[in-house]
Design a protein around this nucleic acid. Structure first.
Lengths: 357, 357
DNA sequence: GCGTATCAGGCAAACGCTTTCCCGCGAGCG
DNA sequence: CGCTCGCGGGAAAGCGTTTGCCTGATACGC
């Protein structure tokens, strides 16, 4: 690889001058030398060594991002928001997938710190795991102590800046909607119980049912991976145990899509026989049939806010921005097929009052 | 940030020794000193400066990847394959999104070169743009000249190692299938015509029709963005111009999903009134209703192969691996509603011979 | 007891760049 | 005409590591 000195030599100038020309230093350079340097750069196909540059100007500019999985639409949307702000400010993003492995998350914090990122953003649910939470907090504190900025998205265990989707209210919205539609036998297809996102959403749901004097017994909840197949499988287990369910809340849209697949394979009509509510409002939600009723989270905006927090002025106290959840009614929800006084029997095939999308 | 010298000072050893302890050099160090260094590392929360390390040991280890958009399922799958191999070999991946902007692609090649990546993988369609192709080839050649390895996925304009999905045969499969089902009025929802992927798939399709003595006139093709909304819009334009279409080929699954949305909004029954074939077999294809008939590409495998090529032994000649496409029949295709001898009129609503999924 | 082989550990030179500081030169001013 | 000032350009000191090489000490053989 050609180096700066190669360029300088070829142009007949000092490395200092070459450097100044190449990255437009404020120090003036005569046009003639500038030309010569530029010519040399072109001839040698010179590209500065990024590591050497970053070492020399100890000027942190990149931002590190740790998500569970960028290819998961939830994070893809958040990342879009992060990118938008970062690009506007000429920042490079280093994105790492933890695949929901706490250890990997810890490793990535170190890695990114080692890469001298100016800030660190952790997106995605936290874990109910005190040992891990403590470790992570220590690492983040150490990082912040050296001037690094930190923001988290969707996890409350860290004390710094945070952007929080209102998972609890979202769960509440889903619960209330189903109650109002007359559903009583509601099953929940949940993500891993170790995730705070799961428990937060569950708590809101439970509260909504509670307000109607109902309960959400543990036997009506199935925990599985937070993806399509997890949703399919959990739904199957749920139906096996309790075939009279009239509604299912999936704690994210991927799981909801899996739930729909299972329902389809069992020939259960949605929403005539059973209603389904998702969570997140991923883009695909409107394209399944029937279109998915779900709780919308402003994902892109969450990314935008988090990046703004971290690149903006350092606040005196840690700031927490809570972003609202919103119910989006589409085609997978409808009135409960069995009125409350009827607890058994399959729904009459007549009720085809489709609430089309 | 604590530096190696800080650690060394605190442990009462030289930086050399500290370094040796920290990255387990082959050079022996007494247990006592080792302990002291390790203790200092822990106390200071020391993390080595990655840039300094990469500068010092001029040992390229990371691999650069340029894709159109990781959050697009097509690339997400490919990336999964890339990751798998890279992780196995302890390589870090730097992934960049070009968002189908050729200039950005060029920039990223430079950026990654600057970051001293050991290899470069470009995934995603090439462009019908000679000036760009030449420029890219120059840059890649310059990079290879300095010992970098290069592989491309799904583009033939580069002369180095390549992994190619068989787009042409895939298009052919889709075309033949529809012909065999008796479709004559076939519309195409295509991606941007500047992409080689678009034209390759189109060429295969055209050939299949040609073998049946049919044509694919330009008026039955609409070009749009390679995503859901592009597909929806192109389908609308297609139907407006030619309401008698009995089948639509979308050149990728995202577009197919958009096509289905448009058909639904126009109350056209799929596949009874109109058939749809997608391309790629993204995970979501089986979850729309009806499930999408599509041409499967071994996306993960493409990633695996490309990374293996680039990390494996340098071949004498550039290697090209062509991976086969395969038709996956699901629910969106069925026999043409109008027999060939009838060229007008809307389909009789009686033919409900659903080929269920 | 001396010389040599062995071994742990330190010194210092890279790695490729940025940037401060300094120097020489020509112009402007008194 | 001499002095100062401004300006373009170069020398060199880092930035934080790694690592080849050297040194001093210890152990060993003769």
């Amino acid at each position: 690889m050609a180096t700066l000195s190669d360029v300088a030599r070829r142009a007949g100038v000092s490395p200092a001058t070459a450097s100044r020309v190449i990255n437009g230093s404020s120090k003036p350079v005569t046009d003639e030398l500038r030309e010569r340097v530029l010519a040399a750069v072109a001839e040698l196909q010179y590209v500065p060594n990024a590591h050497a540059q970053l070492l020399a100007r100890s000027h942190r500019s990149a931002v590190g991002v740790i998500v569970h999985d960028v290819s998961d639409p939830y994070f893809a949307e958040i990342t879009r928001g992060l990118q938008r702000v970062a690009t506007d400010q000429g920042r490079l993003l280093m994105i790492c997938n933890s695949y929901r492995d706490p250890d990997r998350e810890l490793e990535y914090v170190e890695l990114l710190r080692g890469h001298q990122v100016a800030a660190l953003i952790l997106a995605g649910s936290g874990y109910h795991d005190d040992a891990f939470t403590r470790q992570l907090n220590e690492k983040l504190a150490a990082y912040e102590a050296t001037g690094g900025r930190v923001a988290v998205i969707g996890r409350h265990e860290h004390s710094g800046d945070a952007v929080m989707p209102d998972n609890r209210t979202g769960g509440h919205l889903a619960g209330r909607e189903l109650c109002e539609l007359g559903h009583r036998a509601i099953g929940v297809v949940a993500g891993p119980r170790i995730l705070t996102t799961t428990t937060d959403r569950l708590a809101g749901l439970r509260q909504a049912l509670g307000e109607q004097g109902r309960e959400l017994p543990e036997r009506r909840i199935r925990y599985a991976e937070f993806d399509r197949d997890g949703g399919a499988e959990a739904t199957a287990r749920l139906l096996d145990a309790d075939p009279d369910l009239t509604a299912i809340v999936a704690l994210n849209d991927s799981m909801a899509i899996g739930a729909l697949a299972t329902l389809r394979s069992r020939s259960l009509a949605v929403p005539q026989q059973i209603s389904v509510v998702g969570f997140d409002d991923m883009p695909i939600a409107r394209d399944v049939t029937p279109a998915l009723t779900t709780v919308r989270l402003p994902l892109v905006d969450m990314g935008v806010r988090a990046m703004s927090l971290v690149l903006g002025a350092q606040g005196p106290a840690p700031r927490v921005e809570v972003l609202p959840a919103e119910l989006v009614r589409r085609g997978t929800t409808g009135p409960a097929p069995h009125p409350g006084w009827d607890t058994a029997g399959s729904p009459p095939d007549a009720r085809r009052a489709d609430t089309a999308s």
